Simulated scan of single mutants.
Amino acid sequence: MAQDKLEHRLKAKAAELGFAACGIAHADAAPRAGERLHEWLADGRHGDMIWMEERKHHRESPAGLWPEVRSVIALGMSYAPKDDPLRLADEGGVGRISVYAQGPDYHDVVKRQLKALGRWLAAEAGRDLPPFDLKVFVDTAPVMEKPLAEAAGLGWQGKHTNLVSREHGSWLFLGAIYTTLDLEPDRGGVDTCGSCDACQTACPTDAFPRPYQLDARRCISYLTIEHAGPIPHEFRAAIGNRIYGCDDCLAVCPWNKFAASANANLAFHPRAELVAPELADILALDDATFRTVFAGSPIKRIGRDRMIRNALIAAGNSGDPALVEPVVELLADEAPIVRGAAIWALARLDDLRCQAERRRLLPREADDSVVTEWTCAA
């Protein structure tokens, strides 16, 4: 088992473990990634994602996180959806959940298989090579997985800033293995977006100031997942019925036509109750039932209050009078971001009822952000 064959055996094992894509890059193969990261942070486009700033020295290059790394093994798992993610856009009574979050938490699935591949590599290469080390990462670690995946030949960073693959479209979960091994690198990806601007024009909130640049502060995925406070008024109507994330820029990518459909990777098969949940059911969740419903889901990490906030924005956009009473119930919720969103939703659904509730509740409201919502609803 000569070392020059190790890379081929590695890729075969990766495919066996469910990875749809595997490539190798030198640890220093994406030198401009750190520069672009610093520019993005300096412009404040990371919003509330303070950890991006705090660990930028780790994130800017593989060596910044682990000085001994020599090679990066980039891996991707396909989560290509069976159905069009945009098909529920006009279904006001239901909430839209991003494709990636409709099944089990991908962090757990991808990391488990990364560890399995790492164990295989340690055993396989250890027979013929001196001692070496490796570390596995998913996107919770300070790793620039998209530039590294491009450098390893898995695809290229498209104009929506996500990875695009000729074979898998915009539907790849990414992971990486850092190792002290000197592995033969693959040819890097080549940008094939051309003049296409589908992802740019599809964005409901104009989150792309320019192609290949994202202002997270305007991104619906950021606003519904990472942002902790009230969603800015200017974006609420554009959010529509999206209650967790947004697939629009990914879903319109023309390269998706080559992606495997019908959820070929059963590890990410969607849960039926998360494909098109009724907004009324989401609005009724207390903390305990939220934790039960979203157990094992990446959605659980945002907590009940943010999810109810998101569902209230969707309710306000729904035009559905049946949601008035569930919204009114939440005017007295313990969480200010829930009360504030409920005010906005009620004003959109039934302004007369909103004014009556305002006269009743505003005099006893102590939170400034909620008072501001009542003022705006006047």
Rank of each mutant, 00 (worst) to 15 (best):
R36E: 07
A12G: 05
L183R: 11
D368W: 05
Y222A: 01
A89C: 08
A89Y: 09
A284E: 00
T140L: 10
I177Q: 12
V136H: 06
L274N: 07
L223C: 07
K5A: 14
R36T: 02
T179V: 13
V110I: 01
A207E: 06
L174M: 11
P131S: 07
C376K: 00
C196K: 09
G95Q: 09
Y178M: 15
A12L: 08
I177F: 12
E35F: 06
R309I: 03
A280W: 00
G303W: 15
V190S: 01
N317M: 05
E365I: 07
L41I: 15
L274R: 06
K300P: 12
P81Y: 02
G47Y: 12
A262L: 08
L65G: 03
G296W: 15
A377Q: 02
H26K: 12
K5V: 15
P81N: 04
C246S: 08
D367H: 11
H26F: 13
R70A: 08
A264G: 15
A267F: 11
L214Y: 07
A149P: 10
R70K: 10
A315Q: 04
G64H: 05
V72E: 09
H107K: 12
V370Q: 12
T192V: 02
D333W: 01
R271Y: 10
N256R: 14
Y222E: 06
R271E: 14
P147R: 05
A125W: 13
R291W: 01
L117Y: 00
H57M: 04
V338P: 00
A176F: 02
V72I: 12
T205G: 11
V370S: 09
G92Y: 13
W51T: 07
T224F: 04
R127Y: 02
I73H: 10
L41D: 08
H227C: 01
A366E: 06
G240W: 12
I73F: 13
T140F: 11
S170P: 10
A33L: 10
E234K: 02
A216P: 07
H160C: 05
K111L: 11
L283P: 02
H8P: 07
P204R: 09
T192C: 03
L312R: 03
T289G: 00
A25C: 06
D248K: 06
R301E: 14
H269E: 15
A345C: 03
